[in-house]
Design a protein around this nucleic acid. Structure first.
Length: 229
DNA sequence: CCCTGATTCGC
DNA sequence: GCGAATCAGG
C-alpha cells in the first residue's frame, strides 16, 4: 500500500482525533502501526501524549546497556551513539534542578514549607513534641483539581448522534454505521412498542418465516451492510 | 505480556 | 520516503 493523498488525509484526521496508531493502521488497512507512526512523524504531526517521552529526568544514571555479543564488528552507526541524546532538549525552560543528593526520609515531607528561606520558629513542648503555631497548620486542603466528567471535545461526528450511553428501552437501538468507527451510533428514533427497534428496523430485524424449501431473499445485512474499504 | 508512541536506520 | 526493529513507559 502506498500513501495516497486520500490515505494521508485519513491519517491526519484520525491522528488529530486522538485515535491510536494501531486503530488508524487497522482502519486504513494495509499498513502497520509503525508505518502509521512513521508517516505521521514525516508529516510533521506528532506530539500527543506518549507513554515514553514523558520522562525527562537527568538524574537517571547513564545505563550503558549491555552491548550485544553479536556483531561487534558492525560499523558504529554514529560517532558517539552512547550519548547521542542525553542532552535534554530545552523544551521547557530548564530550571536548575536541585542537586541529586541522597534523599533522606525527612526530606520527603509531603508538604514542604512554602517559604524555605524563612526560618521557621517552632517551640518544643514538654516531652519533645513540636508545638504548632496558629499559622503552622499544615495546609491539608489540597486544591481540588478541576475534573471534567465529559470530554470537552466529544468529536464532532458523534455530536447529536445516539451513542451507546443514550440507549434506553424507548428508542431504537438499531446500529448505524460500523462499531468502532468514530461516527458509529444508533438509530435512536421512537421504538415500536414492545420491540427494541423502531417500526422500520423491526421490519428488518424480524422477517416472516417462510415455508421450508422456498427460496428466501438474502438476509438483512448486519450493521448496515458489508464493510467497504 | 499486552498496549502505547518515538526513534533509528537499512532499504 | 518508507517501515521494521528497537526502545521505553504504562
Amino acid at each position: 500500500m502506498s500513501w495516497t493523498d486520500e490515505r494521508i488525509e485519513q491519517l491526519r484526521n484520525m491522528w488529530e482525533k486522538g485515535l491510536t496508531a494501531s486503530q488508524i493502521a487497522d482502519e486504513l488497512g494495509g499498513v502497520s502501526r509503525n508505518a502509521v507512526i512513521g508517516k505521521a512523524h514525516r508529516l510533521g504531526l506528532k506530539s500527543r501524549p506518549s507513554p515514553v517521552k514523558a520522562t525527562e529526568k537527568v538524574a537517571k544514571a547513564p545505563k550503558p546497556v549491555a552491548p550485544k555479543p553479536i556483531a561487534p564488528a558492525a560499523a558504529p552507526r554514529a560517532a558517539a551513539p552512547a550519548f547521542s541524546r542525553p542532552a535534554a532538549p530545552p523544551r521547557t525552560e530548564a530550571k536548575p534542578v536541585a542537586e541529586p543528593r541522597p534523599a533522606t526520609e525527612a526530606d520527603a515531607a509531603d508538604a514542604p514549607p512554602p517559604k524555605p528561606d524563612t526560618p521557621r520558629i517552632v517551640s518544643i513542648g514538654p516531652g519533645g513534641f513540636i508545638r504548632q503555631g496558629p499559622g503552622d497548620q499544615q495546609a491539608p486542603i489540597p486544591p481540588a483539581p478541576p475534573r471534567r466528567l465529559v470530554p470537552a471535545k466529544p468529536s464532532p461526528e458523534i455530536a447529536g448522534k445516539t451513542s451507546l450511553l443514550d440507549l434506553n428501552d424507548r428508542i431504537c437501538r438499531w446500529p448505524m454505521g460500523h462499531p468502532g468507527e468514530p461516527d458509529f451510533h444508533f438509530c435512536g428514533v421512537a421504538v415500536n412498542p414492545g420491540f427494541p427497534y423502531c417500526v422500520e428496523h423491526c421490519g428488518r430485524a424480524y422477517q416472516a418465516q417462510l415455508p421450508r424449501g422456498t427460496r428466501r431473499p438474502p438476509p438483512p445485512p448486519p450493521f448496515g451492510g458489508p464493510r467497504v474499504r
